Amino acid sequence: MENDITVKITDREGIVHEVTAPTDMAMNLMEVIKMYELAPEGTIGICGGMAMCASCQCYVDSAIVLPEMQDEEEAMLSEAFYVKENSRLSCQIPITADLDGLEVELAPES
């Protein structure tokens, strides 16, 4: 579809999945990860995408410019485990056409 982008997601087992994500459904990256079942049920998006649990933390491995991190996301990551310089909460990354080619890796479960 013309409203779809391609995203590469490395799951917690190290397997790379190249998935298609719709840009016309107001989804975020966490919802795409859940849609493709790339993390066991109940281990990602526990707070429902409210930036309150960090279960959807991922590492951004591409140079694509993401939306600026908001205070809630920054505060949650400051308390999370396994945080790296390129950490983001996937629930705070809306799927837009600008993200075509995005590459991320799921952070370990905490």
Rank of each mutant, 00 (worst) to 15 (best):
M30L: 08
D71C: 03
S90I: 06
T10I: 15
L29N: 04
P40M: 03
A51C: 14
P40I: 03
D11R: 09
L77H: 13
D71P: 05
A63Y: 08
C91K: 14
V16I: 15
T43W: 06
D4G: 04
S90C: 10
D100K: 11
A26H: 13
E85S: 01
C58N: 06
V83P: 15
I44N: 06
D61N: 06
I93D: 11
Y36R: 08
C91I: 12
E85N: 01
A107N: 10
L89Q: 05
E74M: 06
G14D: 08
Q92P: 10
M30K: 02
M69W: 01
C56E: 02
A75V: 05
M30P: 02
D24R: 01
A63W: 04
S62L: 03
A54K: 10
P40V: 03
M25I: 02
E31S: 09
T23G: 05
I44K: 05
A80D: 10
L106S: 01
E18H: 08
K84P: 06
E72K: 05
A63K: 15
V16Q: 15
E73C: 04
T43A: 02
Y59G: 04
D71A: 11
E37G: 03
Q57I: 04
P40A: 02
C47Q: 12
S87Q: 08
P22Q: 10
V65T: 12
S87I: 03
V19F: 10
R12E: 00
V104F: 14
S55Y: 02
I93F: 15
Q57Y: 13
V32I: 15
T20W: 14
E31G: 07
Q57S: 12
D98S: 11
E37A: 06
E68M: 04
A39H: 00
G14F: 06
E103V: 11
M35Q: 05
L102Y: 02
E72S: 09
C58G: 13
